[in-house]
Design a protein around this nucleic acid. Structure first.
Length: 293
DNA sequence: GGCTGCAGTTTGGATACACA
DNA sequence: TGTGTATCCAAACTGCAGCC
């Protein structure tokens, strides 16, 4: 039987060799120090969880993964040296081969490989290793669905927000997205990221993309982003309360018609979207991590 | 060696969902 | 409303162990 998940095997295969910021200490595969940046809301300790992930290996599902954890196997090198006593003999070679490749890809920071290989349900674990370098992204469109429909790309890097507007500086968003190994969105798997990839089609990003919609749903947080924000107690400014994606379309049309205030409000709305993704990601990571053995 | 049962993984279709 | 993905669930499949 083919052990590759079809949806994963046909995904983007980037050979992008761009270099990205080195990770914080705590990642056993990282030897050189990463130059600290400005004070960040991400400056809490975040444990490495991605490196305890085995369910992307052939023949290993969540059940076997949990059994490996129970047996004290908590990283890929240990799995390679001790896995033979816990895995079916016929699978050990294949598992070790992919585990070795996983380590090599991790050392090379080939996040595109992880993005294509990790089951979507566990991509949130990448926040453990890459959370300090996460970029929270949200786009607005003119109502259409296509690369040219993008009107605004908003991004929050944990310190500052960055707004990119069509016909002004939209292309500059590509550089910011390129520079981050972890991109966090809400429903971006189906909407934001396909459009962004189409828009910057001449570039191959190297990042792991976490769509918060699904981790939050695992935690029982159903509904759209605004509803979930209310549930967890995230507040919005008075001026942007009640706005939604369709309002963003209308505001863009008003701006095109000459209303500068409409663009200001649109950017304020998008800015809140991306800023609120950060605490939601942290919440999802903390709760899902604590629910794992 | 062949059969059977079991545990675990994979597959594929239907459905739900959230975005603008 | 169109889009695209994840999730759910049942069925099929794989590999192993035990038994004869």
């Amino acid at each position: 039987m083919n052990n590759l998940r079809p949806a994963q095997s046909i995904r983007r295969k980037s050979k992008n060799k761009r270099r990205f910021p080195r990770l914080e200490k705590g990642s056993f595969l990282f030897s050189k120090p990463w130059k600290p940046r400005a004070i960040s809301r991400h400056s809490w300790f975040i444990p490495p969880v991605l490196q305890q992930t085995f369910c992307h290996l052939p023949g290993i599902g969540t059940t076997t993964e949990r059994r490996l954890w129970r047996e004290g196997i908590r990283d890929w090198p240990t799995l390679i040296t001790e896995g033979h006593r816990l895995l079916h003999a016929g699978r050990v070679d294949a598992v070790c081969r992919v585990a070795e490749e996983t380590i090599a890809r991790f050392e090379r920071r080939d996040w595109t490989w992880f993005d294509a290989t990790l089951p979507s349900a566990v991509k949130w674990r990448a926040f453990g290793e890459l959370g300090q370098h996460a970029l929270y992204v949200d786009i607005e469109t003119d109502g259409g669905f296509g690369a040219e429909a993008i009107t605004v790309i908003g991004a929050f890097d944990g310190v500052a927000t960055h707004m990119f507007v069509a016909d002004r500086n939209l292309e500059a968003a590509r550089e910011l997205i390129e520079a981050h190994p972890l991109v966090v969105t809400f429903n971006g798997q189906a909407f934001d990221m396909p459009l962004i990839h189409e828009r910057f089609r001449h570039n191959l990003f190297n990042h792991i993309h976490v769509d918060l919609r699904f981790p939050l749903r695992k935690l029982g947080l159903h509904g759209g982003l605004k509803l979930i924000e209310q549930i967890v107690g995230l507040e919005r400014a008075l001026q942007t309360q009640g706005l939604d994606g369709w309002a963003a379309v209308r505001l863009w049309q008003e701006w095109q018609a000459g209303s500068a205030a409409a663009l200001d409000l649109l950017l304020a709305y998008n800015r809140e979207d991306v800023v609120n993704l950060a605490p939601l990601m942290r919440l999802a990571f903390d709760r899902l991590k604590s629910s794992s053995p």
